[in-house]
Design a protein around this nucleic acid. Structure first.
Lengths: 190, 190
DNA sequence: GTAAATTCTTGATTTTTATCAAGAGCAACT
DNA sequence: AGTTGCTCTTGATAAAAATCAAGAATTTAC
């Protein structure tokens, strides 16, 4: 099984191998160079991609600062979900932080899965609810944890990220300033 | 059209009246007394309900404090989404803050919609993506706003809530302590 | 209607986090 | 290799928010 197939399997729960390869076959490989934009705010988002390698930053520029909403890593899917599903202008800008390999499915192909894969609607729902639950957890972390607690929690689960992308983006994603991030990090290292 | 039907219509987007009443007919009225639990953490959540009147608090008790995740009001649906969809133990406790009228559909009836309403899977997906987008906005508010900004933003969009439920719960839901909430409120009133 | 319980406010203080400013460390470019 | 940008760190200070404690206001229960 390819990594794409393994991820489809793990994202969508128990699912038979025929279905997995049938879904995987609809994704096409693409390469992004560091700095390339996968998507820009207000543009149309007609693709859903699986990250095979590299890092992508999902963010929004406000008057006074950039806000990093998330960093997508190997094994995750990346898209502007509401834009992709509702054909609305994208909420987020998505940019490659490193060279990136992705597997992409276009909206038109995506629509076909409904008919070619009988269980697709059900799998798709489970996928989206899973994403929903992840966001619920993130909100909870902002309601119940300090910056330092969020740092530690995130660090424990994403160690590999800390020496591969600019730390300022991780800081933003955790809801703190880079200086605060740096000070927490210093404490932790000693 | 009943309020339930209107809400189904607005939640699920454009949809024909036959479909609306067909969906609405599967919901049964229920009454909750103030203080009643709609759901408790780790229990099975087999219902999705539409709030006709009253307020429900969705929260979690941690060692040191209660964390209010959301307050459901008239016109909203309420459930523990991951518990309901995945048949997993509920993540949240949900309690009536006032007497509450709801319309409820049980999981078993809910499952039937897939077959009786052709477009159901599509509508359901749109519904869940809509919920997802709402949570994205909330995360963004924690990454980019101060407590005071979150207060004002929420106040502008939910004025009615401020004189109908204990303010400490709104404070928690916005990620601040009741004292901070009270001080911001004082500033605003003057 | 009154007592009890809960919720809200306020002040004083501490802790946490942001801001500002400067310099050090690193990486990228030619 | 040297210069130019970024990025990260550090210190000093300011602002924001939490904590603690007490009392006022409101709601609930009998």
């Amino acid at each position: 099984m390819t990594e794409l197939e393994l991820s489809i399997k793990s994202y969508f729960g128990v699912i038979d191998p025929e279905e997995v390869s049938s879904i995987a076959s609809l994704f096409q490989p693409e390469l992004l160079k560091k700095g390339d934009y996968f998507l820009k705010t207000n543009k149309n988002c007609d693709r859903l991609s699986f990250v095979q390698s590299g890092f992508l930053r999902i963010f929004l520029e406000t008057e006074d600062k950039d806000v990093t909403q998330w960093i997508s890593t190997k094994g995750y899917f990346v898209t502007d979900l509401s834009g992709f599903i509702f054909d609305q202008p994208a909420r987020w800008t998505i940019q490659a932080l490193t060279d990136v390999e992705i597997y992409t499915i276009r909206k038109s192909e995506y629509e076909k899965m409904k008919t070619t894969i009988p269980r697709w609607s059900e799998l798709e729902k489970l996928f989206i609810v899973h994403c929903f639950t992840t966001l619920e957890d993130r909100i909870f972390s902002h309601l119940s944890m300090t910056a330092e607690e969020r740092y530690h929690f995130f660090f424990e689960n994403n160690k590999e990220l800390f020496n591969q992308v600019p730390l300022q983006y991780i800081a933003s994603m955790l809801g703190m300033r880079p200086e605060t991030f740096s000070r927490i990090r210093k404490k932790q290292l000693s």
